[in-house]
């Protein structure tokens, strides 16, 4: 895959969109939860719209990340994709393990919400450990 943008420009393009989106997510998360709790939303359609609206910035950030992977330099792309793959593998493994433990009634209900932060935690750690210890190619 050829490099579409210089590294700095690719990073600038990512930061320009990711920062505002994360801020929007924080605002929507707080205001959406408050709306749902205080106004006792009765209609399922309204609840669904509220829930999906809160999710939109996260989906957009992930899409921006994928664009960044395509635009950045080859070494950064390799490191980022490797970390992303590791995080995906750990998260999907966790989903299966917890899912079957629940199925066999060995654990109670685990909030699905926890898997998102787990993914980003492993992704962040994998990026660092790759930089500190790894031979990238």
């Amino acid at each position: 895959m050829s490099q579409r943008y210089e590294f700095k420009e690719a990073r600038r393009r990512y930061n320009r969109i990711a920062g505002p989106l994360m801020a929007a997510y924080a605002v929507l998360c707080l205001s959406g939860s408050a709306l749902w709790a205080f106004f006792d939303v009765e209609f399922k359609l309204v609840s669904a719209i509220l829930a999906l609206t809160i999710c939109l910035p996260i989906v957009a950030v992930l899409l921006a990340k994928l664009r960044y992977f395509e635009e950045t330099d080859e070494y950064t792309r390799l490191r980022q994709l490797r970390a992303f793959a590791r995080a995906g593998a750990v998260t999907v493994s966790a989903v299966f393990i917890v899912g079957f433990l629940q199925l066999f009634e060995l654990v109670g209900q685990v909030p699905v919400f926890l898997f998102g932060p787990l993914f980003f935690l492993v992704y962040g750690l994998a990026t660092c450990t790759d930089r500190w210890f790894g031979k990238a190619a």
Partner: peptide
């Protein structure tokens, strides 16, 4: 047009 980390890694 690459990152400083790229140069260091090479």
């Amino acid at each position: 047009g690459v990152s400083r980390q790229s140069v260091n890694a090479i």
